[in-house]
Nucleic acid binder design. Structure first.
Lengths: 232, 232
DNA sequence: CGCGGCGTTGATCTCTGTCAATACTTGTGG
DNA sequence: CCACAAGTATTGACAGAGATCAACGCCGCG
């Protein structure tokens, strides 16, 4: 856990707002672990004893149905925390977690966390803020699935990846397209075609590289008459 | 706030697990309000100063897009709390709330809640548990939209309304079908037709009354080869 | 060089949305 | 008490989005 890691941890909604010494008291001597693509962190239904901070890489959270179908409910990256909530609802993870890219994670023990919360009520407020953050993300995801078409959802996905606020840019898709598709609630084939439909709006795709001519066009596209494509 | 109300409050995930005196200290002299169908409680983006316990009736939470389309993300009933999380994420409600049935609500002030949390760290743990409960509900909703067909989603909706664990029963739909449809991510017309498709599985509908011959059939239907209908 | 995973493309099908017409229910006012 | 209007639910015909199935191309890797 080098200084850069600390910087990342302090950039999270959870640890970013609390006094330095409180953060230290929680993270103290927690373990940093490295994982390879495909590793499982925990499975839906397992008892939840810890949560995670992503220091590097990507981790997906998903639900599996009795017959094996997967629904990705979130993909987390450097500077994000996940599974904080699980430890408080019956102590069971409601989702499964798998590393989708070589990753470095900080694992934080639930036992010690609870102890710290009792000593430091403000810590609880931070946890609540973080929890609310995830709540909001899920609500937005539901909104998108219900109200936006596939091309619009990808447009939104791309926008969130953009480092700039206006103009154009080139971004690299962070993980496999099949996973992006699942995350957005569609099939890989649909993702391909939907990306094709964004071409007229200045989006060109070459392997994992996507270049966007003008962000504003995409923003406008997302807000254009729900579920309808261009035209009117 | 009569004894029955207290019983309801104590049945929530939030107030059910804490010591009596802590619950009293929070709820103390909070106000009970009555509302008629159609009343707005708050709007997405407003600053969040309180959260609610439903004592009677139904309340819907939804998102609206710039051009007015609605996506219902939750409908809450007697014994449920909502908007607890909002007060901790930038203090703004991420959703709008509207009463969909004549209702009685208990409104709990955020200021006093925060104060109590600092005095009573355990209270924070209860809040976290409640928050996680909502998190889980949203995750399940996403799973359902992504993996289940319209008829399967209604089947699930009906099952959650059933008071019995096995056999058959008759239930009354708690609110308008248009709202049920939106809640399940479909149009009213689709709801009608989807209910029709459940007929062969022993579901008959007459106005707002639904009778189910055998719960087990529906359960099986929901788990049958994702998105596919019966047979193969 | 050949194999396997991943992504694209094409043809077709199915589900759900859309638009429109029709009951049915409820509430209002004469 | 009835006529009428407005809101709500159902039904039909149709269109479109996305899923499915299958084939193919591409790239990395042994």
């Amino acid at each position: 856990m080098d200084p850069t890691d600390w910087q990342i941890v302090r950039s999270t909604p959870l640890f970013g707002t609390m006094p330095q010494e409180v953060a230290v008291s929680v993270i103290g001597n927690q373990t940093v672990t490295v994982h390879r693509k495909g590793e499982m962190l925990f499975q839906q239904g397992e008892s939840a004893n810890s949560f995670f901070v992503v220091l590097d890489g990507w981790v997906k959270l998903y639900r599996v149905t009795p017959d094996g179908a997967e629904a990705v409910v979130g993909v987390f990256r450097r500077g994000e925390t996940f599974a904080e909530g699980a430890m408080f609802i019956g102590g069971r993870y409601p989702v499964s977690a798998e590393v989708v890219t070589s990753s470095r994670l900080l694992r934080i023990d639930g036992q010690t966390l609870r102890r710290r919360i009792r000593e430091q009520p403000d810590l609880a407020l931070s946890m609540l803020a973080s929890s609310s953050y995830h709540l909001k993300a899920l609500v937005e995801q539901i909104e998108h699935i219900k109200l936006l078409s596939a091309p619009q959802r990808i447009a939104d996905f791309l926008l969130r990846l953009c480092p700039v606020r206006e103009g154009g840019c080139t971004i690299e898709l962070p993980y496999e397209k099949a996973l992006i598709a699942n995350r957005l609630g569609m099939k890989p084939e649909s993702l391909s075609r939907a990306l094709g439909k964004l071409r007229p709006l200045g989006v060109s795709v070459d392997r994992e590289n996507v270049t966007i001519v003008d962000i504003a066009l995409l923003k406008q596209f997302i807000e254009s008459t729900e579920r309808g494509d261009e035209g009117f």
